[in-house]
Amino acid sequence: MKTQRQTQKDQTRKLLLDTAIVQLAKDGLITTKTSDIAKAAGVSHGTVFVHFPTREILLSEVIEEVGMRIASRLNELAGNGGSVRDILTAHLKGLSEYEAFYTRLVVENNLIPEKSRHTLIMIQSAISIHLNHAVEREVSLGSIRPFPTHLLFNTWVGLIHYYLSNADLFSPNHSVLHRHGQTLIDHFLTMISP
């Protein structure tokens, strides 16, 4: 059984992680200061380093945690199969729930520590497996043209990443996926239809 001290320590750690998720999404993965995370969490700056010895460790744990949450959510939404349209819809729904943080990850992925960079690929793997199954089924039915698997996926992801990384131009102050998601799905499906 955990001591009261240990329970309190776990709670502070969770508070710091949850606060860091919000703060990093808002101010950027690279530029957010640990002092701002501490302030937002209502703890002293030193407390951050009791739980996470360096800023890099904190960043790495936050990215890993959010990555697992997104991957798990995508799997939950898309795991029951369905049409290509269903999977694309599930993909955008899952991403929209973490839109600010996911956008930061896309935009700053080549700036974050190397050991955290696999997280974006892990997230893509969680959805690509379901999309691939649906695509193979519909290609065999003739409702989609055949393409190399990775090019079809990267064409889709490239489209949504362009809108996400320029959200200030496409949808200032609102979710770009909510505003343009349906249009992007319709357009992509039209492009790959026979």
């Binding site: 960079r117 696999h118 690929i121 892990m122 793997s125 497996i129 990775h150 990267n154």
Partner: peptide, 24 residues
């Protein structure tokens, strides 16, 4: 191979990514 097939990564980059995922 899954990462190469579905996301088109370079083979060495894909193997490195696979190992980073497995480490967790």
């Amino acid at each position: 191979n899954f990462i190469i097939k579905t996301q088109g990564l370079d083979e060495e980059a894909a193997r490195k990514t696979a190992l980073e995922m497995m480490a967790k």
